[in-house]
């Protein structure tokens, strides 16, 4: 009975059970040279399960043996110094790495129990399920409306114009952009400000109704005000989607995420609830990064 309430509580808070601090087994401080992941990588009832993921660019190994779960309705932040492989890893989750010549992925990434790297899996529905927002706002050189309508249109989500209009409006509202663009839907999307463009890209992603949204440093090209607008948006989107966000800013990770994963030179060093990672990092490397000794 007690367990049940805790599960419920965890669900309503949107945090996976396994991630609550109490569940984490307390271990001794690991060695600085240790590359074994510290903390609990699993969550209860995960959305996506990654096990033993390796990524190679040609002969170079960019990701080494990463295992992590992505929970439902949580924001998972991935932090780490430049070149640590966090972007590479997030791009594995919807197979965007397929477009890179010479990129090879091994290991298992399960979505609804199916390995997305299985030969039989089609990337088109996968990418509709796992949407992505990129570092630089990249709206199509088309109107605001067309930008948002493109995904639903190619997937045939709307039966007629009215339905499409509704989808576009809903997506723009969810992205918090509707009030700003409702009078200029047919003006070029590239004419918006940087922050608006990035929210337009988020609207474009959620118009397809994905289950997971991947964000690869979505605020790195934006000013602080636009950044805070996007952060608020991420906080709200969490109630409906699972979100993975790669970020350079530790403050941003602390503000928006429930769980944080720290990457270092291709290894997943530490995973844990964000509060715990920032207040009590266990691995010396995590500690160095959090305290600003490098990064």
């Amino acid at each position: 009975m007690l367990t049940l309430t805790r599960v419920e509580e965890a669900m309503t808070k949107g945090v996976g059970l396994g991630t609550s601090p109490g569940e984490e087994p307390a271990r001794g401080r690991p060695d600085r040279e240790s590359r074994e992941t510290v903390g609990t990588v699993t969550v209860e009832n995960p959305r996506m399960v990654c096990r033993g993921v390796n990524v190679f660019y040609g002969d170079k190994q960019a990701i080494r043996n990463v295992s992590i779960d992505i929970g439902r309705n949580e924001v998972l932040a991935m932090i780490g110094p430049s070149g640590c492989g966090k972007s590479t890893f997030i791009r594995c989750l919807n197979r965007m790495n397929d477009t890179i010549e010479g990129c090879r992925v091994t290991g298992e990434i399960l979505l609804d129990g199916v390995n997305i790297y299985d030969r039989k899996v089609d990337v088109v529905p996968l990418r509709a399920q796992v949407g992505m927002v990129f570092q630089k706002p990249n709206p199509f050189p088309k109107s605001v409306y067309e930008n948002v309508a493109y995904g639903p249109r190619i997937h045939g989500l709307a039966r007629n114009r009215a339905e499409l209009d509704e989808i576009v409006e809903r997506a723009l509202r969810k992205a918090g952009l509707w009030d700003e663009v409702k009078d200029r839907l047919h003006e070029p999307g590239t004419g918006l400000s940087g922050g608006q463009q990035q929210r337009l890209c988020i609207a474009r992603t959620i118009a397809v109704n994905p289950e997971i949204i991947l964000m690869d440093e979505p605020c790195s090209a934006l000013d602080p005000i636009a950044t805070s607008v996007i952060e608020d948006l991420i906080f709200e989107l969490r109630t409906q989607y699972s979100i993975c966000i790669v970020t350079h800013s530790m403050q941003q990770a602390a503000r928006v995420s429930q769980r944080t994963a720290y990457f270092h030179l291709g290894d997943l060093i530490e995973v844990g609830p964000t509060d715990r990672i920032f207040t009590n990092p266990r691995h010396p490397l995590t500690q160095d990064y959090i305290t600003g000794r490098f990064g």
Binding site: N94, T99, V124, P125, M132, F140, G151
Partner: peptide
């Protein structure tokens, strides 16, 4: 290209 592929084109 990434944008289009990202929404599942």
């Amino acid at each position: 290209r990434e944008a289009a592929l990202g929404v599942g084109a």
